[in-house]
Design a protein around this nucleic acid. Structure first.
Length: 261
DNA sequence: ATTGTGGCCTGCCCGC
DNA sequence: TGCGGGCAGGCCACAA
């Protein structure tokens, strides 16, 4: 499930492997995968150009093209992988087969005869977009400031976790990282987002940043301390209490009833 | 605008 | 051995 750490790895990989190469062809066999665009439009917009920069905002990977070319936006959904010249940024992805079967290639750009950038996505939940609306996303979770976090939470009656998952307010937090950060911060996912104390906001800000850095270093959003216990019968790794499971913000959520309030 | 719900997509895993 | 159901979740459309 690509969350922020995975997409950041894809960005870094694209930056090292896909820039300054001439795009010679667009291969878009799956029209479903193209959002608000077509194979013809993509071909006309991209062939002959080169990527000059790889950026990321939340879970959206952005590839800038040279000249007055467009921005290409890549979304990975839950199972999407980035493959360049046969190499993947991550070899394994939870909830996704370890194999990147060729039949799951949904989109590719050719760099001459041999080079290729591919998106391999078994479940087709990702997609490709030209000129995505970057401003529709909130500040990136990795660099969000405390005051930006306050702004994202204040006056919201939604459950805290639902707000954290709302990409329009904070970009990049997915289900696993939300559970991990709330567990570390000792905050219940059910707390009304706008009712945190100043001290609690500070704790959340600190622990969200620590979670993102930790999981990136460890190798992905499924490497959190809570993760192994995020299952029926699981216990809090901190104090041993049976974890509670319920749906919050439309997502399966696990948290500790003892230390998360 | 806010908040909640359901559906999309498909592979995998479990129980029968 | 095959089959059906449930589940995973990022994102979007839609409702109130």
């Amino acid at each position: 499930m690509p969350e922020l750490p995975e997409v950041e790895a894809y960005r870094s990989f694209a930056e090292s492997a896909a820039l300054r190469r001439r795009i010679t062809a667009v291969e878009a066999p799956d029209a479903w995968f193209l959002k608000r665009t077509t194979a013809e439009e993509l071909s006309g917009a991209l062939v002959g150009r080169r990527f000059v920069r790889a950026r990321r905002r939340g879970k959206l990977l952005l590839l800038d093209t040279d000249g007055d070319g467009p921005v290409l936006g890549l979304r990975f959904g839950m199972t999407g992988r980035l493959v360049v010249d046969g190499s993947m940024a991550f070899d394994t992805l939870l909830y996704s087969s370890a194999l990147a079967k060729p039949g799951w290639d949904r989109f590719a750009l050719h760099f001459g005869a041999r080079g290729r950038l591919r998106m391999n996505d078994p479940r087709r939940l990702g997609g490709i977009e030209l000129e995505p609306d970057e401003e529709a996303l909130g500040p990136d979770a990795l660099s969000i400031t405390r005051s930006q976090l306050v702004a994202a939470l204040e006056r919201s009656a939604a459950p805290l976790k639902a707000r954290l998952l709302d990409q329009a307010h904070i970009a990049g937090v997915g289900n696993l990282i939300a559970d991990e950060a709330l567990w570390r911060a000792g905050l219940s996912p059910l707390r009304p987002a706008g009712r945190l104390t100043a001290r609690e906001v500070t704790r959340l800000h600190t622990q969200l940043a620590a979670t993102l850095v930790d999981l990136s270093v460890r190798g992905g959003s499924h490497t959190g301390d809570l993760m192994p216990e995020r299952r029926p019968g699981g216990h809090c790794p901190r104090d041993g209490r049976p974890l509670v499971r319920s749906t919050v913000g439309g997502r399966t959520s696990w948290w500790c009833p003892k230390h998360q309030h």
